[in-house]
Design a protein around this nucleic acid. Structure first.
Lengths: 334, 334
DNA sequence: TCAGAGGGCATGCCCAAGAG
DNA sequence: CTCTTGGGCATGCCCTCTGA
């Protein structure tokens, strides 16, 4: 090894040590879990319009969507001082094998003409509809920063409110189906990143790209429901704590862990009343927004379970979607 | 138009006129019918071994085969004086659209590495397992001599008998499935050609390349059977000639037309007897081989219909296959 | 009249059971 | 114990029907 090579190597080792924290995050394999390590209250709401070409299953936390159809996500996060630009890195990975790269199939690649400056994008199964999106990674990459991903800059200036809460709507689409890539299950990972690459928040959504989103969603939900019923039945047969089991089952579905969340509910005020029209009204008052969000989250989970129990009742589904909108509104509160 | 162009055009018109007969045959779209224009008694037998990975449906004249598995055909033809080398040109085309070219799918192409001298073969969905096979045609070609095809030289010297009957076993396989090419039905066309390209005989076999040959064959045969039953029932409801209808239906399946076949049966001697073991024996005697072949053909059709009526009885299937072997032996008679 | 939805089919693929 | 076979599922796609 020549001298200058040794020198460069030493320099690079120093740099590596300095960047170690970031490297550990972004050069290791992705993990399919939600977190808010940076304390940015990173969260997202799937904005399923009535006429939209895709569906979101609340109980399964899963998008069902046709190829080449766009879906919207509302990204929320709290700005922190000093204000700095943040990016959203999004990539697809196999739910049961995060180390395997996700490629487009040759058949769809071949009908996507290669032009002067679309080489990177062309290889990406995930497409961002937002301007200024950058396609990163290589076919060999396994770590978060090396694998194929789309990085979308989040415009701080445009949508930040006085309270420091930022909200932005993004749109994505897929240009292959799950059947193209061996019918393996896939998940979409959203990483909130600082400009230096540090990951300060992560959110995961399961994805199925197929030709009959509705059919497949109903199928999956029915299956999940029968599993739940079965586990409940077994638990009841064996011994008492059926409810505990059930809760555990629900918990494992949702791996959310928000490090900056305050779980203290002691100061909450709860109230149910009857309106003059005969409707029922629930009022809750919390000292902290997080508490409110947590409550709504719980309502959503319950609604999701109800949807599962009665898959054909559209009004239950509407109820769940209303709760999602409520969550969105809550996020936007100052 | 410039002068030299006019000249070249004139020359080419002359050449074209001279080659017109051949051009008409080989540069027009293929037709999915059997013929023996050249009087070579061209015919073939599908030699389905007990352990073979493919199946031949007699009533449907259709091969069911897995991708990448080879099947055998025995080619028969009568040598004519003066003896000259003949070729067998084989190609696949869409049963319902003979003008459309048949390509391999990009997915399978991409796992078939391109080497120095396999470019033509790589693009061909049909592969010949025989030595000295030549891959012809272009992706744009529509006519018989221009589209993708494999030409196999028939070795006259090796297998010709004293009587002038030539028999040769060939093997082919497919490297894509029907599902790869839009799930459209396909047919395999065998053209017996003189060295100059003149087509002197043609034989067509329907092909389905799939993962479950047995299931799909049974499915297709069941469907054909129900169609026949229905048409028979309708005919019976309407008026008398049910049998005629049925025969017509069978006829339309088999488009064979042998120009050199002698249909005169007047000199045939028919005899049925009982052996000492109690078996029944049928003896037929004909002055001409063609007559014998024709009789066997009729028995095959009847057996095929019986297979259709009782799809699960393997002995009927064996019976049909025995008849096929009989046909093969008859072909080999001096 | 046309597009979206629902039902049904076609077909690759996986898994359990049986045979050599 | 491994290979084959049958059954069943997953999923793209087509056809028909109905509502705007």
């Amino acid at each position: 090894m020549k001298l200058y090579q040794l020198y460069e190597r030493k320099q690079s080792v120093l740099r590596e040590m300095m960047l170690q924290d970031i490297q550990i995050q972004s050069n290791t394999l992705p993990k399919l879990e939600n977190h808010n390590i940076g304390g940015y209250s990173f969260s997202m709401v799937l904005d399923e319009k009535p006429k939209s070409q895709w569906m979101y299953s609340v109980p399964l936390n899963k998008i069902y969507i046709r190829m080449n159809k766009a879906f919207n996500v509302d990204v929320h996060f709290k700005s922190k001082m000093p204000i700095q630009p943040l990016n959203l890195r999004v990539f697809l990975c196999f739910t049961n094998d995060v180390s395997a790269p996700v490629f487009r199939c040759q058949n769809h690649l071949s009908v996507d003409p290669l032009t002067a400056n679309n080489a990177k994008m062309r290889e990406s199964l995930l497409r961002s509809e937002n301007p200024n999106s950058v396609y990163c990674g290589t076919a060999q990459g396994k770590g978060i920063s090396e694998r194929f991903s789309v990085v979308v800059p989040l415009n701080m200036n445009r949508s930040v409110t006085r309270t420091g809460l930022t909200r932005q709507t993004l749109a994505f689409k897929f240009v292959c189906q799950n059947s193209c890539i061996g019918r393996k299950e896939t998940s979409l990972v959203f990483c909130l990143e600082k400009a230096c690459g540090e990951i300060v928040g992560q959110h995961v959504i399961h994805v199925k790209i197929c030709t009959c989103p509705k059919r497949d969603r109903i199928q999956d939900e029915r299956q999940l429901d029968s599993k739940k019923r079965k586990s409940v039945a077994e638990a009841t047969d064996e011994d008492e704590p059926a409810k505990v089991r059930r809760c555990t089952a629900i918990k494992t579905e949702d791996t959310e862990s928000n490090d900056s969340r305050d779980s203290d509910n002691s100061a909450a005020e709860w109230n149910v009343s009857r309106t003059q029209d005969g409707d029922y009204r629930l009022t809750i008052t919390c000292p902290k927004k997080e508490c409110l969000l947590q409550s709504i989250e719980g309502m959503i989970k319950e609604a999701a379970a109800e949807v599962l129990r009665n898959p054909n009742q559209e009004n239950l589904r509407r109820h769940a979607n209303k709760l999602l909108s409520l969550k969105k509104s809550a996020h936007e509160l100052p």
